[in-house]
Every structure is written in C-alpha cells, then in structure tokens.
Design a protein around this nucleic acid. Structure first.
Length: 624
DNA sequence: CGTTCTCGCGCG
DNA sequence: AAAGCGCGCGAGAACG
C-alpha cells in the first residue's frame, strides 16, 4: 500500500532564511492542512495537524510517498512521533535527469496534472505571519482553495511516482543515508558566524562608499555587475565582457586611469559574497548548535550530491593565511586592528568560512579525500593499463605527462612548472577539451600557456592515452547505435539501453544514468535536460567526451557512496561529503584516521582494479 | 509586491 | 577524429 502525502505548514520563521532543517524543528511551525491518497484512491483533505490516521496507516505497513520527503519526514518528527521511511518523488525525478522542483518536474514530464500556480498567493497569505506577527485565520473559500492546492500536489506527485521507475534497493539505501546525515547535521561556531558577518559587512560597506565617491554616486554597490561593466567601458574606453575577477585581473595591468584602476581593484577585492554564508549559518542553526538538511540526494544528473541552505560544496579554499589565528582575531580584535593585520582583509575573512564548521565537544573531524579520483576512474574505465599501473605504483603521472609534452625524459618532480602543466593535462584533457579551452583553463589557474604549448599538451595527452580517446568515440557510437536499433549496446564497462522515454547508461555499479527524451538529429545525439546555468529545461546535445565525463563523475560518486555506507556500518558517522571528500565526526582515537582511509580505499566488487587512493587528516575545525 | 531570469562566485 | 562537465546561491534587474 502506497500513501501519497503532502503537508501545508505555517511558521513564524522564514524557511528561506533558515532552511528546512530549522524551519521544521521550530516550535512555531505547524501543519495547517494536509492531503493524502491511498494507492489509486481519491485524494482526501484533512484540516489541522492530527496525524493519527496516518500513524495507523504507518502501523499497517504503508509505504509513504512525498515530493521532497525530507520535509514531510521532518514535519512528522516535529509532531512528536517518529516518521516512517519515505519514497521521495523528487529523488526519482532527479535520478532521471529531471528538475527537482515539483512544478518543473511536472512540466518537463508534461503530466496531466500540473502544479497549481494559484497556491503562491495562499502561501504568502496564510503560511507566513502578517505584519503584526500573527497568523491570519484560514477559513471559508481560501481554506477550500488551500486544500485543493494541496490535493493537486498529491495528484502531481502520484503521477510522477507512476511515471518513473523506483530507485533500486541500493540507491534507496543511499537516499536514506543522505537523510540520516541531513538529520545528524553539523555543528556551527555561531560566535564566529555573527562576528565575521559584521566584519565583512563593515568592509563591504566601506568599499561601496568608496565606489560612490569614485563614480559621483552613480552606484550604490559593487555587485551591480552589468551596469558596472558598461560604465567602465563607456567611461574609460575599456572593452570588458564581464566584471568577473579573472577578466579584471587580466586587464588591470593595462589600465592607466587611476580611478578606473581603483574601481577594478575594489570589484576584485569585494565582489565576492562573503558575508552571505555567515548570515545563512546564523539563520539556519538549530537550538542545539547544528545546521541540518543540507545535502540533496542525486542533486546532479550524474548522481553527485548537491547542497542547499548553506551551500557546503563550494566553500572557498581561502588564501594562504593561518585560519586559526584569523578566527581568533575576528572573535577578539576590533575591525581596525584586523584590517591592519591583513593586506587582503576580505580574503582573510572568506578564508575562515570553512572554520565555521566545528566538531562537537569531545569529538574531532576526520577529513579524507580521494586523490584525483576522476582521472583514475577514467584510466580504469578506458582500459589504459599503463596509467592504471602507474597510479597503483604511486608514480607521479603529472611528471610522466610533462615528459611527453616536452619530449624530455629527464624531467622530475623538481621541474615545478612542467609538472604543473602535466597536471592540468591529466586532470583537464580526459573529456576531449580542445587546445583553446585548455589555454583558458590553465590561465584560470594562473598559468600562462601559449597556443603552441597548449596544442602540444592536448596532442601529447591524446597520444599518450589513446584508449581514452577511443573511449570517447566508442561511448558515442554505442549510445547512437542504441538509439538507432533500440537494442542494448555495450562500451567496455558501461551499457546503453533504451527504455520508455529514456536512454540509460548502466554503470559498473548497475546504477543507470538517465537521458530524457533522447533523439538523433542528423546523426547527433540530443536529449532534454535542465540547463545548469539558467535552469531552463531544454534540448541539449551530447557527444563522446561529454558522455565520458558523465560516466567518470558517476562512477567516482558510486565509489564514494559505497565507502559512505561502509563508514556508517563501522559506526563512523558522516557529517558531510563533498564530491571526493568525506568528513566523519567521531571521538578521537589512535588509528581511527587510518581506519577511515582504509574503509574509503576499500573497493566494491564491481570496482576491483580501479587504482584509487585517499589521504586525510584530523581536525577540530573544518579546513582544507 | 513577488517571481523569474542573468551574471558572477565558489567548489569538485 | 570535435566539443571539458557538474552544481547552488546572492544580488540585481526585468517582468507582471
């Protein structure tokens, strides 16, 4: 028996500011009404927060289904009863390469039920307090409309559920593990959050004031990016395409006007949004000092986790300063003293963002990450035996690459510049990058590589790793053949199949990557996906190099997911995972770091032979 | 006034 | 033998 359910809740606190973790646990948060449907039955609307009939269904072994089940589970928990396990239609949508949001998912699937747009007005009216801080009373026609809106959400989620295959048992387990981590949460240094936010706001405020002076009050903020670009171009004869820091760094040496120079310097130094993460941390922290509900299962189409509320997957690495010293200055010193201490005070503050996350009293973080896992997975999948064995021996592949690029066997680790180029090639050229893009990528890492050298590097990579190159073409041709014939086609360790509205790519772990509404257009493979920049759901083309990238990212994720399950089995609680890194929070114990590393390096049956490696450290305060 | 899109930032 | 890819969020601006 499946029970499809959707809660409408109200709260005195703002879910946008606090995230679902704190929102659901706040005492002012309560269920206004809810709708549910049993199997194919009619949707039932219930006013108020009495869940007793739901608990009865739970007792009878019903399987509950919700869209973004984490929310329903947390709300259920807040009523004082342990929630059942859920199937999450958002997880189903995302694991099929569809948008996560209920409305967007319904739209992209062109369901017969669509999300009711009129719900927004009701939510603003009844789910948030009025200006006097009190809730408006939901009754009469608006109550009926609210229940109708809620019921439609149930219809939509039921239709998504019927339309998409369920997660396999292993992946449902990974989904549950994600929820477990989300509920466990991670502790925040709240004192640091509030003080650092003030420091950052001071600095940004001063920079914006200076911008006003320099531009005769034409601006109020350095983040007015488009206007700032046009202004610099018009006023100073520049030809900027953006005001991104990379482009600005490039042109700065050629700008002669002192005012333009200063504006650009201000934008580079203060354009980043540093105080935002501190503020979000302050807002999202629960009563026990932890933030929760930050990981999104299968947020990326490849299966990687993404993160929200506080985006934990893009914490700045920081500049080269001692973060502990900087944090104690933020806590104990005045801003003036602080600014004297650091020539780049914004850089210093943003270097402390990682330090917001601290281990619970008596515990410590074990931070372990895989070494260039995607490059290793690629060599393994492509069958590059030599590279695989070099990786296994612990050889320096970056130097080996440099030797080929420069046609010089005498190069060693000490040839830093050459090795750096070799590293860029190994990490960057595996998915078909051309030499122009390679040049730009090198430049973004501060390496000035000319076109000839870039061309040499790309050619050398492709010559040295012929099987990687053929892997691109074989992947594309297997996918295209599957589209042409409707039959499964294998490419080494992966297998393409055509089922329903999807082209699937089955990975060694048996998990399937999904491509929605695939088509051959003049022999080229296209499919529908959400544009990662604009969020528009649209047709996009793909090709060997891109398929290769998807597969490598996905396999690396599967290796990490497997390790995460293992860590939890050995009672090593994960509080965070970031693409190739896992953070465990546990009591300090001799040998524990090695244990975490060993468990992460242990490979599942399907990945035997993959040359992975991991390293890490322990720390009370999160850092890179 | 709220929603949606774009730009730019940060990570892997 | 041609192409690197995957995200979320804040702020501003456009839209209704």
């Amino acid at each position: 028996m499946y029970v499809f359910i959707d809660f409408e809740t109200r709260s005195k606190i703002d879910i946008k500011k606090c995230g679902a973790g704190r929102y659901c646990s706040d005492p002012s948060t309560e269920i206004l009404c809810y709708s549910y449907a049993i199997d194919d039955g009619e949707v039932v609307n219930v006013q108020g927060d009495d869940l007793s009939s739901m608990r009865e269904l739970q007792m009878r072994g019903a399987v509950f289904v919700a869209h973004n089940a984490a929310f329903e589970q947390a709300i259920w928990e807040n009523t004082g009863y342990p929630p059942p396990e859920f199937i999450c239609t958002m997880a189903l949508a995302q694991s099929h390469g569809l948008p996560g949001g209920l409305g967007r998912a319904a739209k992209s699937l062109q369901l017969s039920f669509q999300k009711e747009v009129s719900g927004t007005r009701l939510i603003n009216m009844y789910c948030k307090p009025a200006k006097d801080g009190e809730f408006r009373v939901l009754e009469g026609e608006d109550l009926q409309d609210m229940m109708y809106y809620c019921a439609m959400d149930v219809e939509v989620e039921r239709e998504i559920f019927k339309r998409l295959p369920k997660l396999n048992a292993w992946e449902q387990g990974i989904f549950q593990l994600t929820q477990k981590i989300n509920n466990r949460g991670i502790k925040i240094d709240t004192e640091l959050a509030s003080k650092a936010s003030l420091f950052a706001k001071d600095l940004i405020g001063a920079a914006n004031e200076r911008l006003k002076e320099l531009t005769d009050n034409k601006f109020y903020s350095l983040s007015q990016t488009v206007r700032l670009r046009n202004y610099l171009n018009d006023q100073y004869g520049l030809s900027l395409e953006t005001v991104g820091s990379q482009e600005l760094e490039e042109v700065l040496p050629f700008v002669s006007d002192p005012v333009a120079k200063e504006i650009i310097t201000l934008r580079i130094g203060f354009g980043r949004s540093s105080s935002a993460k501190f503020d979000k941390a302050s807002g999202a922290v629960c009563d026990d000092g932890r933030v929760r509900n930050y990981l999104i299962y299968h947020g990326a189409s490849t299966g990687r986790w993404t993160s929200h509320t506080i985006q934990l997957q893009n914490l700045p690495r920081g500049i080269d300063i001692d973060a502990d010293t900087c944090i104690s200055l933020i806590k104990n010193a005045d801003p003036e003293v602080f600014n004297m201490f650091y020539p780049d005070p914004m850089g210093a503050i943003s270097s402390c963002i990682r330090g917001l996350f601290v281990a619970e009293e008596g515990k410590t973080f074990y931070v372990v990450d895989y070494a260039s896992i995607e490059a290793r997975v690629l060599m393994w999948l492509a069958g590059e035996k030599k590279a695989v064995s070099l990786f296994k021996q612990g050889a320096d592949l970056y130097v080996e690459m440099a030797k080929v690029i420069h046609n010089n066997q005498k190069l060693t680790k000490e040839n830093k510049k050459e090795r750096q180029l070799g590293k860029q090639a190994i990490l960057g050229c595996g998915y078909g990058m051309g030499h122009k893009k390679f040049m730009a990528t090198c430049l973004s890492y501060g390496m000035d590589v000319d076109e000839t050298l870039a061309e040499k590097a790309v050619k050398a990579y492709r010559k040295m790793h012929k099987k990687v190159v053929s892997f691109w073409y074989d992947l594309e041709s297997a996918a295209v053949q599957t589209m042409r014939t409707g039959k499964a086609h294998r490419c080494g360790p992966v297998r393409f199949t055509r089922e329903g509205e999807f082209l699937y790519c089955q990975l060694p772990s048996k998990r399937k990557l999904a491509y929605y509404k695939p088509l051959l257009e003049e022999g080229k493979l296209v499919y529908f996906t959400q544009d990662s920049q604009t969020h528009n759901f649209k047709k996009t083309n793909t090709y060997g190099g891109k398929l290769c990238e998807n597969v490598c990212q996905a396999v690396a994720r599967d290796i990490m997911a497997d390790a995460m399950v293992r860590l939890e089995t050995f009672n090593l609680p994960i509080v965070l995972s970031v693409h190739d890194e896992i953070v465990v929070e546990a009591k300090q114990k001799a040998g524990r770091l090695e244990q975490v590393i060993d468990l992460m390096k242990t490979l599942p049956e399907w990945a035997q032979g993959c040359p992975i490696d991991a390293e890490g450290f322990e720390t009370k305060r999160y850092k890179k």
